[in-house]
């Protein structure tokens, strides 16, 4: 029986990487006013609620042109 706490040091890098993705996406969302579709609220909710997939979908489909 492995305890989750034993594996915690190994889980931290994953959480950090996911946070990097989420934070980069959030910074991008708040710095830009226009998106290819959708509005700010939609993208913030999507990015925060869907781990991993949210930021990916935002950068591919939601990101407007700079």
């Amino acid at each position: 029986m492995t305890q989750i706490s034993d594996l915690l040091p190994l889980l931290i890098p994953i959480i950090v990487l996911e946070l990097i993705l989420v934070i980069t996406a959030l910074i991008h969302i708040f710095r830009h006013k226009t998106y290819r579709f959708g509005n700010r609220v939609l993208w913030v909710v999507l990015v925060l609620c869907f781990q991993l997939i949210g930021p990916v979908v935002y950068f591919i489909f939601g990101r407007g042109d700079d």
Binding site: M1, E18, I60
Partner: peptide
């Protein structure tokens, strides 16, 4: 366009997550 960042992050996460998931699956 952040595509390199996304691809690297996602694949590195998969690389870290898979062994951990396998280890924790019984629990």
């Amino acid at each position: 366009s952040y595509k390199a960042l996304i691809l690297l992050c996602v694949f590195i996460i998969f690389g870290m997550m898979s062994p951990l998931l396998a280890k924790m699956m019984p629990d």
